[in-house]
Simulated scan of single mutants.
Amino acid sequence: MAGESDWQHALLRELGQAAPSRPDLNRPGDAGQALDPARPPTTSAERQAPYAPAPRQDHNARLPGPVPQSVPTMDPRLAIALGGPRHGDSIPRRAGAGLRRLTAPAGQEAAEQTRLAQEVQQPVTTGRVIAVTAIRGGVGKSTVSALLGRTFNHYRHDPVLALDADAALGTLPVRMGAQAVRWTCADLAQILTPAMQLTDVTGYLVPVADGGWLLPAGQGRVGAPLDVRTYRTVTLALRRYFGVTVVDCESLPGEVARTAMDTAHVRVVVAPMTAEGVHGTRQVLDWLAQLPHSVLTTTVVVLSAASPDASLDVQVATAHLRRPGVAVIVLPYDRHLAQGGPIHTAQLSRSARDAALQLAAEVMGRAVTVR
């Protein structure tokens, strides 16, 4: 196990600081700190300090064309209209959940959270790519990508990248809380070289407020979508710098989405909690089963509820989607997620945080088994 983590320590040594020690999940203090996504880890400052952009060369000199300018991810007027973030649960639901926790068997919930945290923290020998897609837009694909990116960054000690591989109007930068974007996938495809170090690469990325990095597909303008060649160039080059890369793909059957699904270590398919959404997602699973190399054992379906009044029978839907080897995770309705805009972990409902951790553990458990 120690040999597997040498790759992560080598990356951090480039920045002049060894990787911080993992929390001791057997000690109550460390376990509580590691398991509460709403609270930053005690080593938050230490974790973010080595990842601060410190370019060793002039970035502008690398780009053959004009240097891009920073562009806001959201019109300030819309940000005002969005208002303050709502909590994922109403006050009565929060009060009821608190009472249930008081009456639950002592230690049972903590033990399960500890187990899931250990799954998420598994070391990897090479960077793992997780592709997230759906049968159509607007079903929560970028939301799930952002939740995965934030969860991995909270629990893991190696660099985590959220990569937007959607068309130019993707919403991942907004969901990740980025105020502005500048360098895009197409820009990096022209710049990346094998000699670049992590500190060089991060100078082109957007640092996420609670840690981790973001690379947008575009600057929010209608234009040519990301092409397959650019996607392959960027993902193959960045895998050696980041322990986990979460890719927010375009919707199927887009060419980049099909390429990402075929080449990723793990595939996450987001299905809306509707009859037609479940039916279409089952067709995607049937297609994945027919690929030259079976990928169902590295596929996870997220059944996402966009309304508190969803009437679809969850058990029937889950059974319809559960092909051999496929895991199904239910992401319940959350008022904070439904509001749109940046995701604030502290505002998520307890059930949404638990689902995000369960999803991250399921994904990482499958990712580490892939060579």
Score class of each variant (00 low, 15 high):
P68Y: 04
A110D: 13
Q113S: 11
V246T: 12
H157D: 08
A224G: 00
A306E: 09
R323D: 10
T103S: 14
M74W: 03
E112S: 12
P105D: 08
Q315S: 12
V314P: 03
V266E: 01
S70R: 14
A306Y: 02
R136C: 07
M176H: 07
T281L: 04
V266D: 02
A360D: 02
G365D: 10
V244T: 13
D227H: 05
S145W: 05
G277T: 07
L188D: 09
Y204W: 12
R182G: 03
L78A: 12
A289N: 09
V160M: 02
T143M: 08
A224K: 11
T73R: 06
V160A: 05
P332S: 11
T73K: 06
V284D: 01
A104L: 02
L78T: 14
R100K: 12
Y51V: 05
V295K: 07
R100M: 11
T184R: 13
H265C: 04
N153Q: 13
L357S: 09
P159V: 04
T193P: 04
E46C: 02
Y51S: 07
L169V: 05
L147A: 04
S5I: 15
E255H: 11
Q48S: 08
S142G: 15
L11Q: 08
Q118I: 02
R77E: 13
T42V: 14
P292T: 07
T199R: 15
V368S: 01
L163K: 05
D89R: 11
A189W: 01
T274E: 12
L147R: 01
E276G: 00
R94S: 09
A165I: 06
V201I: 15
H344M: 04
A356Q: 06
G32I: 06
A2V: 12
T103F: 14
Q33T: 07
T245L: 10
T369Y: 02
D30S: 13
L252G: 04
R93V: 10
